[in-house]
Nucleic acid binder design. Structure first.
Lengths: 245, 245
DNA sequence: GAGTGGTCTAGACCACCAA
DNA sequence: TGGTGGTCTAGACCACTCA
């Protein structure tokens, strides 16, 4: 493990290489979401490096929310299934900070072909099979988000309306338990738009009322895009929280 | 330094204590924005700990964008003045990703008293003096952001329209060089609203056209709130970029 | 070449958890 | 009590920058 450490022309730190190896084990399914991975000492001897080097690799993965460390217990593969992180990517909060009950109303689930734009976004060939889902999310009984979701068909064979209904609002948790696909990060583009058509109707708005438009692309291990989503949100009494550092 | 390391009832890691000491030197002005701080070895001997412990403290501060490490040169106090991070908190991007020229049009600068809400937000006594600034930001010649900015008067004595005009769009850079106040993080709340009144007029919009409303509170060292800001943004051809992890 | 941050190791010991 | 992650140290050596 140590031979290319310094002499190599394109030098890469050992812990980065270990990080790649761990990621490959995650992609390969050797350790699944929720599993405990081997201890630092074990990994150190497997990869023939010191514990500190493994430690640094795990630290990096933990800071990316890919692994979770628990002192005294072990290091675990992060999951969207755990209570409390089910809605990790949902940034919409009530203005008064009250706790809210989330409801999920399934609208439609259809198969189709990717146009050139969607193919580009999801890194597919143009014309590849996709699945489109529409749903309505309600907070404390009031419909607030109209979601249009697109995923490639092949990794999600068997995705249907029933599964969306059962998901209880957390698609990511469902992707994991039903299809073994775990999202690790997402990019969002926000803008303000005017409500119209079926969306306005579903959300109980008049045309031209302002909506927060959230376009999101989610990525799984290896930064592979696996979901595109457009959420249209009513924000008269809610806002999207963000922290800048 | 080492005596309370383990026996203490409320145990705190050494590197956290070092981190606090470094932060205090930053607050106290021993090292100012842009300065190089002493080397790791020097700090280690000053605080009577090993280099690795100082290293971990600096790592933490660097990951919070408070310090910046430069291999071969040294570790520096982060600044908003450096080219490229002048607009660190500005997330608005053109739809086609083109580079844009930023223009800053000063509208007004007035003194006033904090109402109870603003006092709460800025951690002031109700009735404390504040300064309010309004300005218009244009991208490539088109006005896109109407900003309403409120800061406490006392740390910003002498802030006026001329200084805002000279700031060239980067208030944070101006805060630093003129008042020694450095912002380290910010919280934002986004929602969609309808344009109206003077804002609609300044941005060249009809009433009721959708605008992205960005409410921001910025914090200096020690998480002290130092600025409130409401930005109203035209997003027909731009979007707010965000990365979720 | 001198000085800085960056990597890697080896080993000791502490804090937390479960059986 | 044993295993896990967490902290801290000391020392060697590499990579980068600049005079």
């Amino acid at each position: 493990m140590n031979d290319k450490q310094y002499s190599s022309p394109s030098y890469k730190p050992l812990y980065d290489q270990i990080k790649v190896l761990i990621t490959q084990s995650l992609i390969g399914g050797e350790w699944r979401p929720g599993d405990m991975i081997p201890s630092e000492i074990e990994l150190a001897s497997r990869y023939k490096v010191s514990q500190g080097t493994v430690r640094k690799a795990i630290d990096a993965l933990a800071s990316e929310n890919i692994l979770i460390r628990r002192q005294g217990k072990g290091t675990f593969v992060a999951t969207h299934n755990a209570e409390g992180i089910k809605l990790r990517f949902l940034r919409l909060t009530s203005a008064d900070g009250q706790k809210e009950v989330l409801q999920n109303e399934f609208l439609s689930c259809t198969k189709g072909k990717a146009d050139s734009r969607m193919a580009l976004i999801l890194d597919l060939k143009a014309g590849a099979s996709i699945i489109e889902v529409k749903r309505l999310l309600s907070f404390s009984g009031r419909p607030l988000i109209y979601d249009h979701i697109v995923v490639p068909a092949s990794p999600f064979k068997g995705l249907n309306g029933a599964k969306v209904e059962e998901s209880n609002g957390s698609m990511y948790s469902m992707y994991e338990s039903q299809f073994g696909v775990r999202m690790i990060r997402a990019e969002e583009r926000l803008k303000a738009v005017a409500a119209s058509g079926e969306v306005a109707e579903a959300l109980g708005l008049k045309n031209h009322e302002p909506l927060l438009s959230i376009e999101r692309v989610s990525f799984t291990y290896g930064d592979k895009p696996m979901e595109w989503r457009l959420g249209l949100c009513v924000t008269d009494n809610h806002h999207y929280m963000n922290e800048l550092e």
